[in-house]
């Protein structure tokens, strides 16, 4: 993590959909050009955390700051202009739009044609498909469309919600390799993943969530060698003394 002020920082973030809190006291940071993994078992609240950052969680308390700006005071559609792009876990493309329309529909792109060509150069498989309805694409192709679309406006931060879910192992490797290159392009990544080991292997740091709370927070290398993570994933849970201060 860079020594300067973090790009994204949550403080005592709590929230949920109804009366019950799904997230409790989340303290998390992402620095510029950093890959940070949020891992946890099913129902741990990791996708909810991504939604909270993106402004799609109906009830939130605490603070989320991005580049010094209070995100909770901003409507969801303002986040892209601030530099935050989002690839949700499901429904991450516009199925009735063509591939090219999916790329052109995103706002805050200065030179659309130049960026479009840059995306086709980066994702060459998409160029021959540009007139195809995105809804007719395979899972791997859809994920490429989603990545290309969110890279069009050259964001500072990409929030990726389980980008490898329901993909074949070969495609998973390609997606993770692509994510690893994003910091070189000046993009920080908040990577929500259930495949904790694969995600941490390409990350700088990570947070492990359990029942809506951060239970482990460390560098990716330290987490990968931490036996408590295996315990958590095997469903034994952690004792209070095991938990890292969040």
């Amino acid at each position: 993590m860079n020594g300067s002020q973090p790009l994204l920082a949550t403080r005592d973030l709590t929230g949920g959909y109804g009366e019950i809190d799904i997230l409790t006291g989340i303290e998390m940071t992402v620095a510029a050009r950093e890959i940070v993994t949020i891992a946890g078992t099913n129902g741990s609240g990791k996708s909810t955390l991504a939604k909270a950052v993106m402004g799609f969680l109906p009830r939130t308390a605490g603070t989320i700051r991005f580049d010094g700006i209070d995100l909770l005071a901003q409507p969801a559609e303002k986040r892209l202009a601030l530099g935050i792009a989002y690839v949700p876990q499901v429904a991450n493309i516009f199925p009735s739009l063509s591939v090219e329309e999916n790329l052109l529909v995103i706002e805050n792109v200065a030179d659309r044609r130049a960026r479009l060509e840059a995306m086709y150069a980066h994702f060459p498989a998409l160029k021959p498909l540009r007139r195809r309805r995105a809804g007719s694409l395979s899972g791997g192709e859809r994920q490429q469309v989603a990545f290309a679309r969110t890279l069009m406006p050259e964001p500072k931060l990409m929030v990726l919600d389980e980008p490898t879910a329901a993909l074949s192992p070969a495609i998973v490797s390609k997606i993770l390799a692509l994510i690893r290159t994003l910091p070189e392009a000046g993009v920080a990544v908040l990577l929500v993943e259930q495949r904790a080991r694969e995600a941490l292997a390409i990350s700088d740091r990570g947070y492990i969530l359990d029942q809506g709370r951060i239970v482990l927070a460390d560098t990716a290398a330290a987490l990968l060698s931490d036996t408590r993570m295996a315990e958590l994933y095997l469903g034994h849970g952690l004792t209070e003394s095991d938990k890292a201060p969040s």
Binding site: A91, S96, V105, E107
Partner: peptide
């Protein structure tokens, strides 16, 4: 037109459209 593209995007997925900076 870009407006039509945005309209069809909102029709497809309003939340995804918002995350793309589109004011629904």
């Amino acid at each position: 037109t870009p407006l039509g593209r945005r309209m069809r995007a909102v029709a497809d997925n309003p939340d995804l459209a918002r995350s793309c900076g589109i004011s629904s």
